[in-house]
Amino acid sequence: MSQKSPLLNIDNLKVHLPLEEGVLKAVDGLSLTIEHGQTLGLVGESGCGKSMTALSILRIAPRFAQTSGSIVLHPRSGPPLDLVGLDAEGKTIRTIRGGEIAMIFQEPMTSFSPLYTIGNQVIEAIRLHRTPDKQAAREIAVDMLERVRIPGASQTLDKYPQELSGGMRQRAMIAMALSCHPSLLVADEPTTALDVTVQAQVLRLMRDLQAEFGMSILYITHDLGVIARMVSEVAVMYLGRIVEQASVDSLFHAPHHPYTQALLKSVPRMGKKSKRRLDSIQGNVPVPINTPKGCGFFPRCPVAIPGLCDRVDPPLVPVEDGQRVRCFLYPEVVAVAEQQGSIAHDVQ
């Protein structure tokens, strides 16, 4: 199903939030490509900038955020479009939101307004992007609710969100997101708040729907288990940047970046007997305000090279087939850095 043509090109995306204490660099030079029909996973601890990236794609990051770089969308019709250059409240971005790119969120409990029925809120999206006709929009909504396997779709439309369970609400959310046939679905931790069994159902549903609709998915999560089940390609994010990108297989079997390695070690595995305690990554995720120069992971890295890692920021470089890493442990990375002239001087 993948046609290997880019749908979304994010290049050097920076989202900076000016706060009283300094500038918080939520996203700091992120580059990423999502192909048509691809499911890309974006993994990282909370606070690493995943959600901010998602919000920025739709241009719904907080108003005071300063966004730079480019996010180029290749829409179904018309020329490529740089979303960063658009007026965040303008008409163009509004036809893309919900139309070309839809998003589902973590909190099914609060994602719908309690004051309106599910139907009201789902139909609102359909009428914005597909048909202004109320009756037709309602039929589409009923159809979508049936497709996400909500029983009694028509009655459910007239219910208020608080009358539905979390799993049902998240299904309704997915129905709303997919109702306008987006080419890209941004899913920001859509199953985190759900029970494990419900989680499995929703994940399966999303996979089925992707096959059915053929859209791309940007799947954001901190849960590596979900990643293994859902996606083909993974990008690992740390402090607002990609530190490693690889196919799911390569990443799980041969993680290159020390951060990825540590992340994988901290996941419990079934069946694997071990007397050791589960590892945890030492230290906390630093808050990206006034970050020192050098690799962001340096303070927590067990294999850091003093004198290098704390002074120079490594570039993201392909080291093996389709695997890109941002770490000086790999000669390819050092070579690129030397070429760019960022270390020749510094390292002696």
Binding site: L55, L58, I60, E89, R94, T95, I96, R97, G98, G99, A102, M103, F105, E107, T110, S111, F112, S113, P114, Q121, E124, A125, L128, H129, M173, M176, A177
Partner: peptide
């Protein structure tokens, strides 16, 4: 609130 962001994400003016 989340529902405001949700509504914005679906393209409401």
């Amino acid at each position: 609130k989340q529902y405001v962001i949700t509504a914005r994400a679906k393209g409401v003016s």
